[in-house]
Simulated scan of single mutants.
Amino acid sequence: MTRTVTLETIDYGPVTFDEPPWCVGHHGQHEIYRTDIVHNSVRVKSGTSTETKGWLPMLTVHIAWAPFRELVPVISLVLDAEGDFQAEDGRRISEGLVTAAMRIEAVAAEAIRLRDGIV
């Protein structure tokens, strides 16, 4: 079921558009231009636990689509892991990166599936 949403924009006034079912809403999108309207999916996170520094966030990835700026959905990716670690943490960090890569691939596959339904 597609919902219709209306947002007030600086350049076009009220803009009404269909919101895809995977969009989590447009909270916080105020005082924007029409091209700033973005559909965002749920954010998928990945990380690992290290012995010396505890939890290490590695990435956040989600599907994003600015329908007035982009033809199709894209993936929005933030890589978080940075720092110096004990050598003993290397295996856990490596395993965490493998998990992170699998999550990127899954989100990218879903974006491709959604894109194929649009174009």
Rank of each mutant, 00 (worst) to 15 (best):
V78C: 04
R103W: 00
E8I: 01
T16V: 04
G28I: 02
D89L: 02
A66H: 09
S76Y: 04
L114F: 00
A66Q: 15
Y12S: 12
Q86E: 14
P67M: 03
V107P: 10
S94Y: 02
I37D: 11
E82G: 10
A106P: 06
V15F: 00
V38E: 15
P20S: 08
R34A: 11
E8W: 00
D11F: 01
T16H: 05
R3T: 10
D11C: 04
W22H: 14
C23A: 11
T4Y: 02
R92M: 06
L114D: 07
V44T: 11
K45C: 13
L79G: 14
Y33M: 14
H26E: 11
G25F: 01
G25W: 00
T50A: 05
G13I: 03
L56N: 08
C23P: 11
R115T: 14
V78F: 01
A87P: 05
A64C: 09
I32E: 10
G117A: 12
M102R: 12
T9P: 12
R3S: 15
T48N: 15
T99G: 04
G25A: 03
K45P: 03
H26Y: 15
G96H: 03
L71D: 14
T6H: 02
F85I: 05
R91A: 14
L56G: 08
A101K: 03
V15W: 01
V38G: 06
E19A: 11
V38H: 06
T60D: 14
A109R: 08
H27W: 07
E110C: 03
W55S: 15
P67I: 02
T6A: 09
R113Y: 01
L77P: 10
A64H: 07
V72T: 15
E105V: 00
E31R: 15
G83C: 06
Q29A: 06
L7D: 09
S46F: 01
A108K: 04
E19H: 01
A81N: 09
D18T: 05
A64F: 00
K45W: 06
P14N: 06
T60E: 10
D80Q: 12
R113I: 02
R103V: 00
K53E: 11
Q86C: 09
L114V: 03
I10H: 02
F85C: 09
Q29F: 00
L97N: 07
A64N: 10
G13V: 05
P57K: 12
L97V: 04
L59C: 10
E51D: 13
T35Q: 15
P57N: 10
V38L: 08
V72G: 03
R69E: 13
P14M: 02
T50R: 10
A109M: 02
S49V: 12
P67G: 11
S76G: 08
S49C: 10
I93E: 08
R103Q: 13
I75F: 02
F85K: 08
G117W: 00
E95A: 14
I63V: 13
E88K: 07
